[in-house]
Computed example of a mutant assay.
Amino acid sequence: MELKDILFKIRKVFSWSLIVASVYGFFEILVSYFGFGFLYPTLKLFDYFPFLEVAIHNGGRISSIAYEPPFFAIYLITIAGWMFSYILTEKSSWKFLPGTAVLLLTFFSGSRTGLMVVFFQLIIFGTIVFKDRKNRSYLVKSLYGFLIVFSLLLLFNGEKIINAVSEKIVSLDFIGNLKSNKSNQSRFGLQYASLQVFKENPIAGVGFGQQSYHSRTHYPSWATKDNYEFDLMYKNKNVKSFPPGYNLYTRLLAETGIIGFLILVALIYFSLMQTKIVIKKSTGEKQILSYIVLISLSGLFINWLQIDTFRIYGVWLSLAILMRLSNDKKIINE
């Protein structure tokens, strides 16, 4: 494929998926967050879509087309760079809508990791835009657009929005919430157990897929005490699925030791360095694709701090595009 085709065709697929996710998410926000229950029958129409089953989550969080809010956050992290790129390639005023939709959906998803990672991706994109004088006006227009949308939300239901912002800020205090938030206790407890397995097997680990067998004897009392998640899932022998490690890096330390961990770190380092090299030596669609890869990989690598699976397709899509970019005109990392 030509680089232009890679950029526009893949982005179009993500754009259409975002339209569906945004429509679903809009009704879900109105029903679950603002309490417009009369719209629930309209939301239930999405049950006719394949692989979708409409469900309302507690606490006003939304998951849109995904199974749960954390998985919806992974989807948003994956497409964020692609949606931000519209600002660089399009001339019409609607070019700000895809990026704005990603930010709003991330906010209402309630995912703490999603909020932090997408905000970090936004900072990377803002830095890219600010470095180019021609594009600096886009950054200013984006800020104005965000303020307009936020103002409209305040007019619509100001108290609810202010409370929501306050709750999101408080939720980002992971350490402060450790005593009160069972989800945080479980995640940190399982990661702690993985590190204990690594301490016992530091060189080569205990082998792929063996983490759960070894970490179950290392669950800390501060995580398991009065924690229904461990009783219901992680220590329940009737649950067939293995307890997750909630962190790919601690999982690799436990299963492959320092050897496997360093291999992954090397992959991350060289992929990011190669992306920066391609950015410096390219223009046009090639440079835009390089920006997207940088934003996507940066966010997805951070997201691996809270999920322990390699099955994050955005990573491998980005690496495949990076290989295509690197082979174009034989750009070599000297």
Rank of each mutant, 00 (worst) to 15 (best):
K4M: 07
F8H: 12
V13L: 13
A21T: 08
A21Q: 00
Y24Q: 14
Y24H: 13
V31A: 04
S32T: 06
G35E: 10
F38E: 09
F49D: 13
V54S: 03
A55C: 01
A55K: 05
H57D: 12
I79E: 03
Y86I: 10
G99R: 11
A101T: 13
V102T: 06
T106E: 01
F108N: 04
G110T: 01
S111P: 05
T113Y: 13
I123H: 00
F125H: 05
T127D: 01
V129I: 13
V129A: 05
Y138E: 09
K141Y: 13
L143F: 13
S151L: 12
L152E: 08
L152W: 08
F156T: 10
N163R: 15
I175H: 02
K179D: 14
K179C: 07
K182N: 11
S183M: 07
N184H: 12
R187S: 14
F188L: 11
Q191A: 11
G205L: 06
F208H: 09
F208Y: 09
G209N: 02
G209D: 09
T224Y: 00
Y234K: 11
N236F: 09
Y246M: 04
Y249S: 01
T250Q: 02
F261H: 02
I277Y: 08
K281D: 03
I288P: 13
D308Y: 02
T309N: 13
R311W: 15
Y313N: 12
G314S: 06
I321T: 10
R324S: 11
R324H: 03
N333R: 15
